[in-house]
Design a protein around this nucleic acid. Structure first.
Length: 265
DNA sequence: ATGACTAAACCTTTTAGA
């Protein structure tokens, strides 16, 4: 089973790349993508290209928003018990979508796809919102884990775990995505019993999932690892691989993020 | 350099991203 996350930075612009990537995955040795979490659709629900995904053989659940944010789950099986945004947390922004899928072994996997707030700057109102959002997320994920032993929390977290996730940890110390406060929240999610599946496996040095469009960020590998796939212990023992697929970042007109793929036995 | 790109919108300028 394969589960992935990809911040596409406008699905209108990136749809052909997403369809190409899904086809390439299906043709690869590891097999077709079972669930792909997308972030930053930047489109209202009525603009979501469900017919294009259906034609390619995929179901979709989506939670759009005009101009900003917007999340979706693209899957081969139909998602059940769909939840949009964090229950009980009033939010104008479309940032979370969750659904339950067959795990291929007679059980189910709960997948939560999320676009975490950016936070802009540590002294901004947006940072305050990010902290509030993170607290609400943790409480909800805690209850979701109780109901779903096999759970994946994935998406664009907009937080690095540590210096290993940062191209310039000295220069970027204390800046957005790298603050102690954000990292404490990320550790709070881990303390619920989740594991960063990426670090279960040997990785190339300086592995990142996002690179600034400016100043040849990708070419110089000036990036951050802010897109994550966290798994519960029941899935940790089934994880066989996790990695960043940098290939789509080399496309013409790429997203600034690359997909991260988790493979389960 | 409140810069550099990219995307969307009330679009030749602003807002946001990270």
């Amino acid at each position: 089973m394969k589960i992935a996350t990809w911040n596409v930075n406008s699905l209108s612009v990136r749809l052909p790349q997403v369809l190409d990537w899904l086809a390439a995955q299906a043709a690869s040795g590891t097999g077709a993508m079972d669930v792909l979490a997308l972030q930053e659709l930047k489109m209202s629900d009525d603009k979501f290209p469900h017919a294009a995904f259906a034609e390619a053989g995929y179901q979709a659940q989506w939670f759009g928003q005009k101009t900003y944010n917007g999340v979706a789950l693209i899957s081969r099986s139909e998602g059940a018990a769909v939840v949009k945004n964090i229950p009980g947390f009033t939010d104008e922004m479309s940032r979370v979508i969750a659904a339950t899928y067959p795990d291929g072994m007679g059980g189910t996997v709960r997948v939560i796809g999320a676009y975490f707030p950016n936070g802009q700057a540590p002294d901004s109102d947006k940072f305050v919102y990010k902290m509030r959002w993170l607290s609400a997320l943790r409480e909800w994920v805690h209850s979701e884990m109780a109901a779903h032993p096999q759970l994946v929390l994935t998406g664009d977290f907009n937080i690095t775990f540590d210096d290993l996730d940062v191209w310039d940890p000295v220069g970027l110390k204390g800046t957005i995505h790298c603050t102690d406060e954000e990292r404490a929240h990320l550790r709070g999610l881990i303390e619920l019993g989740l594991t960063d599946s990426f670090r279960l496996f040997e990785q190339p040095e300086k592995s990142y999932s996002w690179w600034d469009y400016r100043d040849f960020g990708f070419r110089r590998n000036r990036g951050l690892r802010i897109d994550h796939v966290l798994v519960t212990s029941a899935l940790k023992i089934r994880a066989t691989a996790c990695g960043v697929d940098k290939v789509p970042r080399k496309n013409e007109r790429p997203s600034d993020h690359a997909p991260v793929v988790l493979t389960l036995s």
